[in-house]
Amino acid sequence: MTMLASSAPRLTAIPLSTTDRIASAVIDGLWGTLVGALGELTGIGVLGLPFMQRAYLAAICVAVIGPLVGSFLVHREMAMIGDTLAHSAFAGVAAGLFVNTVFAVTVPPLLAALVVAAVAAVAVQTLIDYAGTYRDASLAIVLTGSFAVGSVLITATDGGIAVGINAYLFGSLATVSRANAALLVALTLVVVTAVAVAYRPLLYTTFDEVGARAAGLPVARYNRLLAVLTAVVVVGAMQIMGVILVAGMLVVPVAATTPVTGFKRSLLAAVAVGQLATIGGVTLAYQYDVAAGGTIILVAITTYLAVTIGSRLRHRRVAGDTSAEN
């Protein structure tokens, strides 16, 4: 526990007594007791470990919000915006750590990441809307620009913060501190509520943007909302997924469930595939002591391949049956 706390000390260091107590009650009290009891019931020992309890909680949250927001991105052909915002979140983490080291003030790196990624999200959307730049060029500019800022900031402190940055780059189960888990739960509630409230505008805009404008919808506003939600998801999921792999949770489960007919059904199916990938990935990562983010993505891609090949074969058989009837 001491070892774990030291790997992500800055958030826990903020004196937020009431928030801390709520986080402790929810994460340790409610969730910990629940999962611990489940562990005893099933005899799965790993469920009794507090840091694994938090890792599973994070896994579940990530697999809800990633595919939820990703469903709207993928069908607008904006799958790569997640990757861009993850890299800008990385710049935010670097900026947070830099400020902490140089000015000796306490800025939680994840908060810095959230702010920078949200600003980058609005910047990307504005570039796309007004600058007339190609969409993927806009994304590439913001992606590399952010990563450039991050890498410069890291090296500007003589490598002092390079150690801390590693956990954010590749993700880690151990970085999910109690405070980070509480933050992720809060972000999940925000994202789920926002998507539930804005579901119809987001769906209409994704399906037919011009039609949505003709129907009187302020489309630009909802595009910015979606970009900011993406930033929130990326920052929330970054802890276990890592900057480089976080975009996968926005895209792979959605791609896997595109054969499902009906947008709402495919969205729910994507969340289910996400759960399979994250819970399976976290378990395997712990079992074999390998990177959680990478394992999660590999499970997700395996599912994607299985579903895609399966649905192709099924279509071929259906097509074969129909032609045999005629």
Partner: peptide
């Protein structure tokens, strides 16, 4: 996009 005919027509009521 996996939108069904019913879902698309429902958008008319949005």
């Amino acid at each position: 996009m996996p939108v069904t005919v019913a879902e698309a027509v429902r958008m008319g009521r949005y």
